[in-house]
Design a protein around this nucleic acid. Structure first.
Length: 571
RNA sequence: CGGGGCGUAGCGCAGCCCGGUAGCGCGCCUGCUUUGGGAGCAGGAUGUCGGAGGUUCAAAUCCUCUCGCCCCGACCA
Protein backbone atom coordinates (compact mmCIF):
# COMPACT_ATOMS: atom_id res chain seq x y z
CA UNK A 1 0.00 0.00 0.00
CA UNK A 2 1.28 3.44 -0.86
CA UNK A 3 0.93 6.11 1.81
CA UNK A 4 -0.40 8.49 -0.83
CA UNK A 5 -3.45 6.22 -1.16
CA UNK A 6 -3.96 5.75 2.54
CA UNK A 7 -5.59 7.97 5.13
CA UNK A 8 -2.73 8.05 7.57
CA UNK A 9 -2.93 11.23 9.61
CA UNK A 10 0.07 11.08 11.93
CA UNK A 11 0.43 13.75 14.56
CA UNK A 12 3.68 15.41 15.49
CA UNK A 13 2.43 16.46 18.87
CA UNK A 14 0.66 14.56 21.59
CA UNK A 15 -3.07 15.17 21.51
CA UNK A 16 -4.26 16.86 24.68
CA UNK A 17 -6.95 14.31 25.40
CA UNK A 18 -4.69 11.29 25.78
CA UNK A 19 -2.74 10.33 28.88
CA UNK A 20 -1.71 6.72 28.54
CA UNK A 21 0.88 5.47 26.11
CA UNK A 22 -1.35 3.31 23.97
CA UNK A 23 -4.04 5.97 23.69
CA UNK A 24 -1.53 8.64 22.73
CA UNK A 25 0.26 6.46 20.21
CA UNK A 26 -2.96 5.17 18.66
CA UNK A 27 -4.01 8.75 18.02
CA UNK A 28 -0.58 9.95 16.90
CA UNK A 29 0.09 7.02 14.60
CA UNK A 30 -3.28 7.51 12.93
CA UNK A 31 -4.92 4.28 14.12
CA UNK A 32 -8.05 5.71 15.69
CA UNK A 33 -10.07 8.89 16.03
CA UNK A 34 -12.60 9.68 18.69
CA UNK A 35 -16.23 10.20 17.75
CA UNK A 36 -17.62 10.56 21.29
CA UNK A 37 -16.50 9.56 24.77
CA UNK A 38 -15.47 5.92 24.58
CA UNK A 39 -16.53 5.64 20.92
CA UNK A 40 -13.97 5.52 18.14
CA UNK A 41 -13.50 5.20 14.42
CA UNK A 42 -10.82 2.72 13.42
CA UNK A 43 -8.77 4.33 10.66
CA UNK A 44 -7.33 2.09 7.93
CA UNK A 45 -4.11 1.38 9.80
CA UNK A 46 -5.86 0.69 13.09
CA UNK A 47 -8.34 -1.58 11.39
CA UNK A 48 -5.54 -3.65 9.87
CA UNK A 49 -4.23 -4.49 13.31
CA UNK A 50 -7.73 -5.15 14.62
CA UNK A 51 -8.36 -7.53 11.72
CA UNK A 52 -5.09 -9.36 12.39
CA UNK A 53 -5.98 -9.88 16.03
CA UNK A 54 -9.38 -11.13 14.87
CA UNK A 55 -7.77 -13.52 12.42
CA UNK A 56 -5.56 -15.02 15.10
CA UNK A 57 -8.59 -15.37 17.35
CA UNK A 58 -10.63 -16.95 14.57
CA UNK A 59 -7.94 -19.46 13.73
CA UNK A 60 -7.51 -20.54 17.31
CA UNK A 61 -11.23 -20.67 18.05
CA UNK A 62 -11.84 -22.79 14.98
CA UNK A 63 -8.93 -24.99 15.91
CA UNK A 64 -10.44 -25.46 19.37
CA UNK A 65 -13.66 -26.65 17.79
CA UNK A 66 -15.78 -23.54 18.18
CA UNK A 67 -18.02 -22.46 15.32
CA UNK A 68 -18.53 -18.89 14.26
CA UNK A 69 -21.92 -17.26 14.00
CA UNK A 70 -23.14 -13.70 14.31
CA UNK A 71 -25.83 -12.47 16.64
CA UNK A 72 -27.60 -9.12 16.42
CA UNK A 73 -26.36 -6.10 18.31
CA UNK A 74 -29.90 -5.14 19.30
CA UNK A 75 -31.94 -7.56 21.33
CA UNK A 76 -35.44 -7.46 22.82
CA UNK A 77 -36.02 -6.82 26.51
CA UNK A 78 -37.96 -10.07 26.92
CA UNK A 79 -34.83 -12.20 26.80
CA UNK A 80 -33.12 -10.05 29.38
CA UNK A 81 -36.13 -10.12 31.63
CA UNK A 82 -36.05 -13.91 31.61
CA UNK A 83 -32.66 -13.96 33.29
CA UNK A 84 -33.34 -10.90 35.41
CA UNK A 85 -30.52 -8.97 33.86
CA UNK A 86 -32.83 -6.33 32.39
CA UNK A 87 -32.89 -4.91 35.93
CA UNK A 88 -29.71 -6.38 37.33
CA UNK A 89 -27.37 -5.00 34.69
CA UNK A 90 -28.22 -1.43 35.59
CA UNK A 91 -27.25 1.64 33.64
CA UNK A 92 -24.43 -0.07 31.82
CA UNK A 93 -27.08 -1.71 29.65
CA UNK A 94 -28.13 0.88 27.10
CA UNK A 95 -31.80 0.70 26.25
CA UNK A 96 -34.10 2.12 23.65
CA UNK A 97 -37.60 1.71 22.31
CA UNK A 98 -38.50 0.92 18.75
CA UNK A 99 -41.32 2.68 16.90
CA UNK A 100 -43.85 0.36 18.49
CA UNK A 101 -42.62 1.33 21.96
CA UNK A 102 -41.09 -2.09 22.46
CA UNK A 103 -38.04 -2.21 24.74
CA UNK A 104 -34.68 -3.14 23.28
CA UNK A 105 -31.08 -2.93 24.34
CA UNK A 106 -27.69 -3.03 22.68
CA UNK A 107 -25.95 -6.20 23.73
CA UNK A 108 -23.17 -5.80 26.28
CA UNK A 109 -22.71 -9.59 26.07
CA UNK A 110 -24.83 -12.33 24.55
CA UNK A 111 -25.65 -15.11 27.01
CA UNK A 112 -29.37 -14.48 26.64
CA UNK A 113 -29.40 -14.46 22.87
CA UNK A 114 -27.24 -17.54 22.44
CA UNK A 115 -29.12 -19.48 25.12
CA UNK A 116 -32.36 -18.64 23.37
CA UNK A 117 -30.93 -19.96 20.12
CA UNK A 118 -29.67 -23.09 21.82
CA UNK A 119 -32.96 -23.97 23.48
CA UNK A 120 -34.84 -23.57 20.22
CA UNK A 121 -32.45 -25.53 18.05
CA UNK A 122 -30.70 -28.17 20.14
CA UNK A 123 -32.53 -31.19 21.56
CA UNK A 124 -30.13 -34.01 22.25
CA UNK A 125 -26.96 -34.71 24.16
CA UNK A 126 -25.76 -36.28 20.91
CA UNK A 127 -25.39 -32.80 19.44
CA UNK A 128 -23.05 -31.74 22.23
CA UNK A 129 -20.51 -30.42 22.94
CA UNK A 130 -21.22 -27.18 21.14
CA UNK A 131 -19.30 -23.96 21.24
CA UNK A 132 -20.44 -20.87 19.35
CA UNK A 133 -18.48 -17.70 18.95
CA UNK A 134 -18.77 -14.35 17.25
CA UNK A 135 -16.62 -11.31 16.78
CA UNK A 136 -18.84 -8.33 17.08
CA UNK A 137 -19.39 -4.83 18.37
CA UNK A 138 -20.60 -4.59 21.95
CA UNK A 139 -22.02 -1.61 23.76
CA UNK A 140 -21.61 -1.02 27.47
CA UNK A 141 -22.47 2.39 28.81
CA UNK A 142 -19.45 2.51 31.10
CA UNK A 143 -19.42 4.86 34.07
CA UNK A 144 -16.13 6.21 32.90
CA UNK A 145 -14.70 5.29 29.54
CA UNK A 146 -11.00 6.01 29.36
CA UNK A 147 -7.64 5.41 27.77
CA UNK A 148 -8.89 5.15 24.20
CA UNK A 149 -9.64 1.57 23.20
CA UNK A 150 -8.69 0.35 26.67
CA UNK A 151 -12.12 1.03 28.12
CA UNK A 152 -14.53 2.10 25.46
CA UNK A 153 -18.31 2.10 25.50
CA UNK A 154 -18.50 0.62 22.04
CA UNK A 155 -15.86 -2.01 21.41
CA UNK A 156 -15.16 -5.15 19.45
CA UNK A 157 -15.36 -8.35 21.39
CA UNK A 158 -14.95 -11.98 20.62
CA UNK A 159 -17.44 -13.86 22.72
CA UNK A 160 -17.89 -17.62 22.82
CA UNK A 161 -20.43 -19.83 24.58
CA UNK A 162 -20.05 -23.51 25.25
CA UNK A 163 -22.84 -26.00 25.93
CA UNK A 164 -22.22 -29.40 27.46
CA UNK A 165 -24.23 -32.30 28.77
CA UNK A 166 -22.47 -32.60 32.12
CA UNK A 167 -19.92 -30.99 34.41
CA UNK A 168 -17.02 -33.10 33.22
CA UNK A 169 -17.55 -32.18 29.60
CA UNK A 170 -18.09 -28.55 30.54
CA UNK A 171 -14.76 -28.46 32.31
CA UNK A 172 -13.13 -29.94 29.24
CA UNK A 173 -14.70 -27.21 27.10
CA UNK A 174 -13.48 -24.62 29.57
CA UNK A 175 -9.97 -26.01 29.45
CA UNK A 176 -10.01 -25.97 25.64
CA UNK A 177 -10.85 -22.29 25.68
CA UNK A 178 -8.26 -21.61 28.34
CA UNK A 179 -5.65 -23.26 26.14
CA UNK A 180 -6.89 -21.44 23.02
CA UNK A 181 -6.61 -18.12 24.86
CA UNK A 182 -3.08 -18.93 25.87
CA UNK A 183 -2.20 -19.55 22.23
CA UNK A 184 -4.00 -16.42 21.05
CA UNK A 185 -2.25 -14.01 23.39
CA UNK A 186 1.08 -15.69 22.83
CA UNK A 187 0.65 -15.32 19.09
CA UNK A 188 -0.24 -11.65 19.57
CA UNK A 189 3.17 -11.17 21.13
CA UNK A 190 1.94 -10.36 24.62
CA UNK A 191 3.45 -11.07 28.00
CA UNK A 192 0.46 -12.16 30.04
CA UNK A 193 -0.70 -14.25 32.94
CA UNK A 194 -3.90 -16.16 33.54
CA UNK A 195 -5.24 -15.40 37.00
CA UNK A 196 -8.12 -16.71 39.08
CA UNK A 197 -10.96 -14.24 38.88
CA UNK A 198 -14.27 -13.24 40.34
CA UNK A 199 -17.31 -13.90 38.18
CA UNK A 200 -19.01 -10.51 38.62
CA UNK A 201 -22.06 -9.56 36.58
CA UNK A 202 -21.76 -12.58 34.29
CA UNK A 203 -22.05 -15.07 37.11
CA UNK A 204 -20.97 -18.67 37.36
CA UNK A 205 -18.55 -20.75 39.34
CA UNK A 206 -15.05 -20.73 37.98
CA UNK A 207 -13.26 -18.01 36.07
CA UNK A 208 -9.85 -16.93 34.88
CA UNK A 209 -8.80 -13.59 33.54
CA UNK A 210 -5.97 -13.18 31.07
CA UNK A 211 -3.95 -10.24 32.24
CA UNK A 212 -1.37 -8.41 30.21
CA UNK A 213 1.11 -7.14 32.76
CA UNK A 214 1.49 -3.38 32.43
CA UNK A 215 1.69 -0.50 34.88
CA UNK A 216 -1.22 1.26 33.22
CA UNK A 217 -3.51 -1.70 33.88
CA UNK A 218 -6.70 -0.99 35.78
CA UNK A 219 -6.75 -4.35 37.51
CA UNK A 220 -4.55 -5.49 40.37
CA UNK A 221 -3.31 -9.05 40.37
CA UNK A 222 -1.34 -11.00 42.91
CA UNK A 223 0.97 -13.85 42.12
CA UNK A 224 3.16 -16.11 44.13
CA UNK A 225 6.92 -16.03 43.85
CA UNK A 226 6.83 -19.82 44.01
CA UNK A 227 4.36 -22.25 42.49
CA UNK A 228 1.72 -21.16 40.02
CA UNK A 229 -0.83 -19.29 42.11
CA UNK A 230 -2.06 -16.05 40.54
CA UNK A 231 -5.33 -14.23 41.08
CA UNK A 232 -7.13 -10.97 40.64
CA UNK A 233 -6.92 -9.16 43.97
CA UNK A 234 -10.74 -9.13 44.02
CA UNK A 235 -10.58 -12.87 44.20
CA UNK A 236 -7.27 -13.68 45.90
CA UNK A 237 -7.80 -15.69 49.06
CA UNK A 238 -6.10 -14.60 52.23
CA UNK A 239 -5.19 -17.26 54.76
CA UNK A 240 -6.07 -16.72 58.43
CA UNK A 241 -3.03 -15.72 60.48
CA UNK A 242 -1.21 -18.67 61.99
CA UNK A 243 0.00 -16.94 65.12
CA UNK A 244 -2.13 -15.14 67.68
CA UNK A 245 -1.21 -12.42 70.12
CA UNK A 246 -1.29 -14.07 73.55
CA UNK A 247 -0.30 -11.11 75.69
CA UNK A 248 -2.49 -10.59 78.75
CA UNK A 249 -5.68 -8.62 78.22
CA UNK A 250 -5.60 -5.14 79.67
CA UNK A 251 -8.74 -3.38 80.84
CA UNK A 252 -10.80 -1.50 78.26
CA UNK A 253 -10.12 2.23 78.53
CA UNK A 254 -11.84 5.14 76.82
CA UNK A 255 -9.56 7.97 75.82
CA UNK A 256 -10.10 11.33 74.23
CA UNK A 257 -9.12 11.59 70.56
CA UNK A 258 -10.37 15.04 69.61
CA UNK A 259 -11.06 15.41 65.91
CA UNK A 260 -9.13 12.23 65.08
CA UNK A 261 -11.26 10.23 62.70
CA UNK A 262 -9.17 8.39 60.16
CA UNK A 263 -6.85 5.48 60.85
CA UNK A 264 -3.96 7.74 60.05
CA UNK A 265 -5.03 10.52 62.41
CA UNK A 266 -5.86 8.20 65.30
CA UNK A 267 -2.72 6.07 65.09
CA UNK A 268 -0.49 9.12 64.79
CA UNK A 269 -2.17 10.74 67.76
CA UNK A 270 -1.85 7.60 69.88
CA UNK A 271 1.62 6.85 68.53
CA UNK A 272 0.68 3.30 67.56
CA UNK A 273 0.97 1.34 64.32
CA UNK A 274 -2.11 0.99 62.10
CA UNK A 275 -1.97 -2.77 62.67
CA UNK A 276 -2.85 -2.16 66.33
CA UNK A 277 -6.15 -0.59 65.39
CA UNK A 278 -9.36 -2.20 64.22
CA UNK A 279 -11.54 -0.06 62.00
CA UNK A 280 -15.27 -0.51 61.94
CA UNK A 281 -16.97 -0.04 58.61
CA UNK A 282 -20.72 -0.07 58.25
CA UNK A 283 -21.98 -1.51 55.00
CA UNK A 284 -25.32 -1.57 53.35
CA UNK A 285 -26.09 -4.97 51.88
CA UNK A 286 -29.52 -4.86 50.29
CA UNK A 287 -31.79 -4.15 53.26
CA UNK A 288 -29.40 -5.08 56.03
CA UNK A 289 -26.64 -2.98 57.58
CA UNK A 290 -23.52 -4.89 58.55
CA UNK A 291 -20.50 -3.88 60.59
CA UNK A 292 -17.16 -5.07 59.24
CA UNK A 293 -14.10 -5.08 61.46
CA UNK A 294 -10.79 -4.90 59.72
CA UNK A 295 -7.23 -4.31 60.85
CA UNK A 296 -6.07 -0.72 60.39
CA UNK A 297 -3.52 -1.50 57.71
CA UNK A 298 -5.87 -3.74 55.72
CA UNK A 299 -8.48 -2.97 53.08
CA UNK A 300 -11.96 -4.43 52.93
CA UNK A 301 -12.58 -6.52 49.85
CA UNK A 302 -16.16 -5.72 48.92
CA UNK A 303 -16.36 -8.53 46.42
CA UNK A 304 -15.63 -11.05 49.16
CA UNK A 305 -18.04 -9.31 51.49
CA UNK A 306 -20.83 -9.40 48.93
CA UNK A 307 -20.18 -13.05 48.19
CA UNK A 308 -20.26 -13.94 51.90
CA UNK A 309 -23.53 -12.09 52.34
CA UNK A 310 -24.94 -13.61 49.14
CA UNK A 311 -25.82 -10.21 47.72
CA UNK A 312 -24.85 -8.72 44.41
CA UNK A 313 -23.42 -5.55 45.75
CA UNK A 314 -22.48 -3.87 49.00
CA UNK A 315 -21.81 -0.23 49.59
CA UNK A 316 -20.73 1.81 52.54
CA UNK A 317 -23.66 2.96 54.65
CA UNK A 318 -24.64 6.59 54.27
CA UNK A 319 -23.32 9.08 56.85
CA UNK A 320 -26.88 9.44 58.20
CA UNK A 321 -27.17 5.72 58.86
CA UNK A 322 -23.75 5.64 60.49
CA UNK A 323 -24.60 8.56 62.74
CA UNK A 324 -27.87 6.96 63.79
CA UNK A 325 -26.44 3.51 64.49
CA UNK A 326 -23.37 4.74 66.35
CA UNK A 327 -25.06 7.71 67.97
CA UNK A 328 -21.94 9.70 67.19
CA UNK A 329 -20.35 11.75 64.43
CA UNK A 330 -18.52 10.04 61.60
CA UNK A 331 -15.10 8.67 62.46
CA UNK A 332 -15.80 7.12 65.82
CA UNK A 333 -17.73 3.95 64.98
CA UNK A 334 -16.73 0.89 66.94
CA UNK A 335 -18.03 -2.55 67.87
CA UNK A 336 -18.35 -1.99 71.61
CA UNK A 337 -22.01 -1.49 72.44
CA UNK A 338 -22.98 -1.45 68.78
CA UNK A 339 -26.56 -2.73 68.53
CA UNK A 340 -28.92 -3.87 65.82
CA UNK A 341 -26.24 -4.86 63.33
CA UNK A 342 -24.44 -8.07 62.60
CA UNK A 343 -20.71 -7.79 63.25
CA UNK A 344 -18.37 -9.51 60.82
CA UNK A 345 -14.62 -9.49 61.24
CA UNK A 346 -11.70 -10.30 59.04
CA UNK A 347 -9.60 -13.28 60.14
CA UNK A 348 -6.74 -10.99 61.06
CA UNK A 349 -8.80 -9.49 63.89
CA UNK A 350 -9.07 -12.91 65.49
CA UNK A 351 -5.39 -12.93 66.37
CA UNK A 352 -5.38 -9.42 67.82
CA UNK A 353 -5.45 -8.32 71.43
CA UNK A 354 -5.57 -4.97 73.17
CA UNK A 355 -6.41 -3.04 70.05
CA UNK A 356 -7.88 0.39 69.42
CA UNK A 357 -11.47 0.84 68.24
CA UNK A 358 -13.90 3.72 67.91
CA UNK A 359 -16.09 4.29 70.98
CA UNK A 360 -19.35 5.32 69.29
CA UNK A 361 -18.96 8.63 71.02
CA UNK A 362 -17.67 11.93 69.68
CA UNK A 363 -13.91 12.43 69.94
CA UNK A 364 -13.41 9.14 71.77
CA UNK A 365 -11.71 5.82 71.06
CA UNK A 366 -11.17 2.76 73.22
CA UNK A 367 -7.73 1.34 73.75
CA UNK A 368 -7.08 -2.24 74.85
CA UNK A 369 -10.29 -3.56 73.38
CA UNK A 370 -10.62 -7.34 73.10
CA UNK A 371 -13.20 -9.27 71.15
CA UNK A 372 -15.40 -11.74 73.01
CA UNK A 373 -14.78 -9.76 76.21
CA UNK A 374 -15.88 -6.28 75.11
CA UNK A 375 -18.08 -7.22 72.19
CA UNK A 376 -19.20 -10.26 70.22
CA UNK A 377 -18.30 -11.06 66.67
CA UNK A 378 -20.97 -12.92 64.74
CA UNK A 379 -18.61 -14.33 62.15
CA UNK A 380 -14.97 -14.33 61.15
CA UNK A 381 -14.20 -14.54 57.46
CA UNK A 382 -11.72 -13.67 54.75
CA UNK A 383 -12.78 -10.10 54.07
CA UNK A 384 -9.65 -8.21 53.10
CA UNK A 385 -7.57 -7.62 50.01
CA UNK A 386 -4.39 -9.59 49.73
CA UNK A 387 -1.28 -7.51 50.25
CA UNK A 388 2.26 -7.78 49.04
CA UNK A 389 4.12 -10.23 51.28
CA UNK A 390 1.06 -12.25 52.29
CA UNK A 391 1.65 -15.99 52.14
CA UNK A 392 0.30 -17.68 49.01
CA UNK A 393 -3.02 -19.40 49.73
CA UNK A 394 -1.63 -22.52 48.07
CA UNK A 395 1.11 -22.69 50.67
CA UNK A 396 3.98 -21.93 48.34
CA UNK A 397 5.89 -18.69 48.68
CA UNK A 398 4.58 -15.16 49.19
CA UNK A 399 2.45 -12.88 47.07
CA UNK A 400 3.51 -9.95 44.93
CA UNK A 401 1.14 -7.32 43.54
CA UNK A 402 1.16 -6.18 39.92
CA UNK A 403 -1.02 -4.16 37.58
CA UNK A 404 -2.66 -5.86 34.66
CA UNK A 405 -4.84 -5.17 31.64
CA UNK A 406 -7.62 -7.71 31.38
CA UNK A 407 -7.67 -8.75 27.74
CA UNK A 408 -9.77 -11.88 28.14
CA UNK A 409 -11.84 -13.78 30.62
CA UNK A 410 -13.21 -17.31 30.67
CA UNK A 411 -16.14 -18.44 32.82
CA UNK A 412 -17.52 -21.80 33.73
CA UNK A 413 -21.11 -20.70 34.09
CA UNK A 414 -22.82 -23.90 35.11
CA UNK A 415 -26.57 -23.67 34.74
CA UNK A 416 -27.05 -20.01 35.61
CA UNK A 417 -28.51 -19.14 32.22
CA UNK A 418 -29.75 -22.51 31.07
CA UNK A 419 -31.83 -22.68 34.25
CA UNK A 420 -33.43 -19.25 34.06
CA UNK A 421 -34.11 -19.69 30.35
CA UNK A 422 -34.90 -23.39 30.53
CA UNK A 423 -32.31 -24.52 28.02
CA UNK A 424 -32.51 -28.28 28.26
CA UNK A 425 -31.39 -31.30 26.30
CA UNK A 426 -32.34 -34.95 26.54
CA UNK A 427 -29.65 -37.19 28.00
CA UNK A 428 -28.95 -40.81 27.07
CA UNK A 429 -31.75 -41.91 29.41
CA UNK A 430 -34.21 -39.67 27.57
CA UNK A 431 -34.31 -37.41 30.59
CA UNK A 432 -34.39 -33.65 30.38
CA UNK A 433 -31.27 -31.94 31.73
CA UNK A 434 -30.06 -28.38 31.88
CA UNK A 435 -27.16 -27.64 29.58
CA UNK A 436 -23.92 -26.74 31.36
CA UNK A 437 -22.56 -23.54 29.93
CA UNK A 438 -19.33 -21.64 29.74
CA UNK A 439 -18.63 -18.23 28.25
CA UNK A 440 -15.42 -16.72 26.99
CA UNK A 441 -14.58 -13.16 25.99
CA UNK A 442 -11.69 -11.32 24.42
CA UNK A 443 -11.47 -7.55 24.01
CA UNK A 444 -10.06 -7.18 20.51
CA UNK A 445 -9.25 -3.47 20.63
CA UNK A 446 -7.99 -3.77 24.16
CA UNK A 447 -5.65 -6.54 23.07
CA UNK A 448 -4.21 -4.22 20.43
CA UNK A 449 -3.90 -1.41 22.98
CA UNK A 450 -2.25 -3.73 25.47
CA UNK A 451 0.25 -4.77 22.81
CA UNK A 452 1.23 -1.13 22.43
CA UNK A 453 1.52 -0.66 26.18
CA UNK A 454 4.01 -3.50 26.19
CA UNK A 455 5.80 -2.70 22.96
CA UNK A 456 6.80 0.92 22.44
CA UNK A 457 9.63 3.36 22.99
CA UNK A 458 9.84 7.15 23.06
CA UNK A 459 9.64 7.29 19.25
CA UNK A 460 6.49 5.25 18.88
CA UNK A 461 4.97 1.82 18.54
CA UNK A 462 7.03 -1.35 18.10
CA UNK A 463 4.46 -3.80 16.73
CA UNK A 464 4.84 -7.50 17.36
CA UNK A 465 5.18 -8.95 13.86
CA UNK A 466 1.90 -10.97 13.85
CA UNK A 467 -0.35 -7.98 14.54
CA UNK A 468 1.59 -5.19 12.86
CA UNK A 469 -0.58 -3.27 10.37
CA UNK A 470 2.29 -3.72 7.89
CA UNK A 471 5.37 -5.88 8.13
CA UNK A 472 7.67 -3.63 6.20
CA UNK A 473 7.83 0.14 5.86
CA UNK A 474 9.53 0.95 2.58
CA UNK A 475 11.33 4.29 2.72
CA UNK A 476 12.74 5.66 -0.51
CA UNK A 477 14.94 8.70 0.10
CA UNK A 478 15.38 11.36 -2.55
CA UNK A 479 13.97 11.61 -6.05
CA UNK A 480 16.64 9.93 -8.16
CA UNK A 481 15.53 7.48 -10.81
CA UNK A 482 17.85 4.85 -9.35
CA UNK A 483 15.96 5.06 -6.02
CA UNK A 484 12.60 5.06 -7.80
CA UNK A 485 13.47 1.96 -9.83
CA UNK A 486 14.91 0.07 -6.90
CA UNK A 487 11.86 0.93 -4.79
CA UNK A 488 9.39 -0.19 -7.44
CA UNK A 489 11.18 -3.50 -7.82
CA UNK A 490 11.51 -4.04 -4.13
CA UNK A 491 7.85 -3.28 -3.52
CA UNK A 492 6.96 -6.07 -5.92
CA UNK A 493 9.42 -8.64 -4.64
CA UNK A 494 8.57 -8.03 -0.99
CA UNK A 495 4.92 -8.58 -1.76
CA UNK A 496 5.67 -11.69 -3.74
CA UNK A 497 7.42 -12.98 -0.64
CA UNK A 498 4.13 -12.59 1.21
CA UNK A 499 5.12 -9.50 3.14
CA UNK A 500 2.75 -6.59 3.67
CA UNK A 501 4.47 -3.42 2.63
CA UNK A 502 3.71 0.20 3.37
CA UNK A 503 5.46 2.30 0.75
CA UNK A 504 6.12 5.87 1.82
CA UNK A 505 5.86 7.48 -1.60
CA UNK A 506 5.50 10.99 -0.27
CA UNK A 507 7.94 13.64 -1.38
CA UNK A 508 9.15 14.18 2.16
CA UNK A 509 12.55 14.61 3.68
CA UNK A 510 14.31 11.64 5.19
CA UNK A 511 13.76 12.81 8.75
CA UNK A 512 10.03 13.07 8.31
CA UNK A 513 9.82 9.59 6.84
CA UNK A 514 12.02 8.06 9.52
CA UNK A 515 10.06 9.65 12.33
CA UNK A 516 6.71 8.61 10.91
CA UNK A 517 8.01 5.09 10.35
CA UNK A 518 9.23 4.85 13.93
CA UNK A 519 5.91 6.19 15.15
CA UNK A 520 3.83 3.75 13.10
CA UNK A 521 6.06 0.94 14.24
CA UNK A 522 6.26 -1.63 11.43
CA UNK A 523 8.76 -4.27 12.61
CA UNK A 524 11.06 -3.59 9.64
CA UNK A 525 12.03 -0.51 7.70
CA UNK A 526 13.73 -0.81 4.36
CA UNK A 527 15.68 2.28 3.38
CA UNK A 528 16.37 2.90 -0.27
CA UNK A 529 18.82 5.76 -0.84
CA UNK A 530 21.40 6.85 -3.34
CA UNK A 531 24.10 6.36 -0.75
CA UNK A 532 23.42 2.69 -0.35
CA UNK A 533 22.60 2.09 -4.00
CA UNK A 534 26.04 3.43 -4.96
CA UNK A 535 27.40 0.34 -3.23
CA UNK A 536 24.58 -1.78 -4.58
CA UNK A 537 23.09 -2.15 -1.10
CA UNK A 538 19.90 -1.38 0.80
CA UNK A 539 19.38 -1.06 4.51
CA UNK A 540 17.00 -3.09 6.65
CA UNK A 541 16.32 -1.59 10.04
CA UNK A 542 14.70 -3.62 12.79
CA UNK A 543 12.33 -1.28 14.63
CA UNK A 544 12.77 -3.02 17.96
CA UNK A 545 16.54 -2.97 18.20
CA UNK A 546 17.37 -0.15 15.81
CA UNK A 547 19.88 -2.52 14.25
CA UNK A 548 20.66 -1.86 10.58
CA UNK A 549 21.71 -4.52 8.11
CA UNK A 550 22.96 -3.79 4.61
CA UNK A 551 22.03 -6.29 1.94
CA UNK A 552 21.73 -6.45 -1.81
CA UNK A 553 18.26 -5.73 -3.25
CA UNK A 554 17.63 -9.34 -4.20
CA UNK A 555 18.27 -10.56 -0.66
CA UNK A 556 15.93 -8.18 1.15
CA UNK A 557 12.75 -10.33 1.27
CA UNK A 558 14.64 -13.44 2.36
CA UNK A 559 16.52 -11.55 5.04
CA UNK A 560 13.35 -10.03 6.48
CA UNK A 561 11.59 -13.38 6.59
CA UNK A 562 14.59 -14.80 8.38
CA UNK A 563 14.68 -12.01 10.94
CA UNK A 564 10.92 -12.28 11.46
CA UNK A 565 11.07 -15.99 12.15
CA UNK A 566 13.92 -15.39 14.59
CA UNK A 567 11.69 -12.92 16.40
CA UNK A 568 8.99 -15.56 16.59
CA UNK A 569 11.16 -18.31 17.93
CA UNK A 570 12.79 -16.08 20.52
CA UNK A 571 9.44 -15.57 22.17
C1' C B 1 -23.15 10.72 40.51
C1' G B 2 -19.28 14.02 43.42
C1' G B 3 -14.69 16.98 42.83
C1' G B 4 -11.16 19.38 39.57
C1' G B 5 -9.85 21.10 34.69
C1' C B 6 -10.61 22.35 29.60
C1' G B 7 -13.56 23.90 25.02
C1' U B 8 -10.16 29.97 20.61
C1' A B 9 -7.80 27.68 12.71
C1' G B 10 -6.67 20.55 11.10
C1' C B 11 -3.22 19.76 15.80
C1' G B 12 -0.74 22.00 20.21
C1' C B 13 -1.55 26.53 22.65
C1' A B 14 -1.57 32.21 24.03
C1' G B 15 -5.19 36.12 24.61
C1' C B 16 -9.78 36.28 29.26
C1' C B 17 -7.95 38.75 35.51
C1' C B 18 -8.11 44.67 33.57
C1' G B 19 -14.21 44.46 27.49
C1' G B 20 -12.28 48.01 22.09
C1' U B 21 -13.74 43.43 17.14
C1' A B 22 -8.21 37.41 17.35
C1' G B 23 -2.80 35.70 17.63
C1' C B 24 1.74 32.13 18.01
C1' G B 25 4.04 27.33 16.67
C1' C B 26 3.23 23.08 13.73
C1' G B 27 0.35 21.43 9.70
C1' C B 28 -2.16 22.96 4.85
C1' C B 29 -1.83 25.65 -0.39
C1' U B 30 1.69 28.23 -4.38
C1' G B 31 6.68 29.16 -6.04
C1' C B 32 12.01 28.77 -5.76
C1' U B 33 16.07 26.49 -3.29
C1' U B 34 17.06 22.14 -0.39
C1' U B 35 16.98 16.67 0.31
C1' G B 36 20.16 9.97 5.03
C1' G B 37 16.69 11.79 11.28
C1' G B 38 10.70 16.44 11.83
C1' A B 39 14.58 22.10 5.84
C1' G B 40 15.08 27.58 4.23
C1' C B 41 13.06 31.86 1.93
C1' A B 42 8.82 34.40 -0.20
C1' G B 43 3.68 34.53 -0.74
C1' G B 44 -1.26 32.56 0.75
C1' A B 45 -5.85 30.22 2.80
C1' U B 46 -8.49 28.75 7.13
C1' G B 47 -12.04 30.82 13.04
C1' U B 48 -20.22 31.40 13.68
C1' C B 49 -13.60 32.01 20.12
C1' G B 50 -18.55 24.89 22.07
C1' G B 51 -24.02 26.68 22.13
C1' A B 52 -28.10 29.96 23.98
C1' G B 53 -29.49 34.11 26.61
C1' G B 54 -28.12 38.57 29.30
C1' U B 55 -25.11 43.22 30.74
C1' U B 56 -22.74 47.06 27.58
C1' C B 57 -21.95 52.02 22.69
C1' A B 58 -18.87 47.52 22.27
C1' A B 59 -18.16 40.57 24.70
C1' A B 60 -13.32 35.35 23.18
C1' U B 61 -12.99 38.47 27.68
C1' C B 62 -18.20 40.07 32.55
C1' C B 63 -23.04 37.37 34.28
C1' U B 64 -26.72 33.19 33.78
C1' C B 65 -28.03 28.73 31.68
C1' U B 66 -26.62 24.75 28.66
C1' C B 67 -23.75 21.02 25.77
C1' G B 68 -19.27 18.40 25.10
C1' C B 69 -14.48 16.52 26.51
C1' C B 70 -10.40 15.16 29.94
C1' C B 71 -8.54 13.79 34.86
C1' C B 72 -9.45 12.05 39.95
C1' G B 73 -12.96 9.79 42.96
C1' A B 74 -17.24 7.25 43.50
C1' C B 75 -14.59 2.52 49.54
C1' C B 76 -11.95 2.93 55.13
C1' A B 77 -15.77 6.80 59.13
Amino acid sequence: MRTSQLLLPTLREDPGEAETVSHRLMLRAGLIRKVAAGIYTYLPLGLRTIRKVETIIRQEMNRAGAQELLMPIASPAELWKETGRWDYYGKELIRFKDRHERDFCLGPTHEEVITDLFRREVRSYRQLPLNFYQIQTKFRDEIRPRFGLMRGREFIMKDAYSFDADETDAKASYQKMYDAYTRIFTRCGLTFRAVEADTGLIGGEVSHEFMVLADTGEATVVYSNQGTYAANVERAEVLPPTEADTSPQRPLTAISTPQRRTVDEVTRFLKIAPRQLVKTLLYKAEKETIAVLIRGDHDVNEVKLARLLRVTEVELASPEVVKTLTASPLGFAGPVGLRNVRILADHAVKSMRNFVVGANQADTHYVDANWNRDFTIDQFADLRNAQSGDPSPRGEGTLTLAKGIEVGQVFLLGTKYSKSMNATILDDQGKERLAIMGCYGIGVGRTAAAAIEQNHDDKGIIWPFPIAPFHVHLLPLGQSSAVADATTNLYATLQQAGLEVLWDDRDERAGVKFNDADLIGAPFQVIVGDKGLAEGLLEIKARKTGEKIKVGPADVPMKILQLASLMHSSR
